[in-house]
Amino acid sequence: MTQASISDRPRSQWNGAKPALPALALLLAFFVLPVAGLLLRSLTEPQFGLQNYAELVATTTYARVIFNTFLVSGVVTVVALVIGYPVAWLLAIMPQRAASIVFGIIVLSMWTNLLARTYAWMVLLQRTGVINKTLMEIGIIDQPLPLVNNLIGVTIGMVYIMLPFIILPLHATMRSIDPAILNAAALCGAGRWESFRRVLLPLSAPGAAAGALMVFVMSLGYYVTPSLLGGTANMMLAGIIAQLVQSLLNWGLGGAAAFVLLVVTLSLYALQVRYLEGRGTLQGVR
């Protein structure tokens, strides 16, 4: 065994790249190639050109689906942020024992099979479901509210799924804030509200932004929950892509919709990597 083979002295420009080749081959053949193929079909079927993209924007149905997708994702993000923020805050400072119980609940809900959770919401929210029945018994409403097969149902189900993705990164950011800074603010005469608005909120903003952006992007492409809770009349982008391809066999239009979703998603991720890198969310990913 010679010294040269042990040390990291570069033997060629491609030093050490070889072990990644099997994975690279798999990804090229079954990831890059099919995605490129789909893009190509969106530009060539039925004939070459941008007609599929034009149809996507010009058709009211599809334009509304795109609008709904952004609307629901936005509302889900805001709601999850507003109710997740206090939880992340308290989690960061509460006694260890209590915190581990709350953490256990968050992780359990996150790890429970997605379909199982969605099924529960389908049953809970239906016309004769527990929520409607309880509300009617208390006397808040006298007609059952339509909570499922519409965008309200989708929003409730999505907030449920996305909450952990806000709470966990935000909690990490909150923990990294030095409590002494808040004490200093108090010593300098800042009241509670002022300390919150001018110290805690700005310091926790990067974590909140990272979590919110991730939740927004994940919501944009979500398929299962919107399809089951929204019904056929309230599809989101992912649902319409699946329908175009599976039932209508319109690969051109389906490919175009898929490509719009892909470009939006990857651009937002690029934004996240560029401006929020290492501030909470994707810790350990890169």
């Binding site: 990804l27 492409g221 398929y223 699946a242 391809v245 990857l266």
Partner: peptide, 24 residues
């Protein structure tokens, strides 16, 4: 670039990958 490529399946919408692979 290679690392980015390897991570992409994690961040891209699953439905896009599903449809593309289904076609292939």
């Amino acid at each position: 670039v290679l690392r980015g490529l390897f991570m992409t399946p994690m961040v891209m919408p699953v439905v896009v990958f599903a449809v593309a692979l289904y076609a292939l």
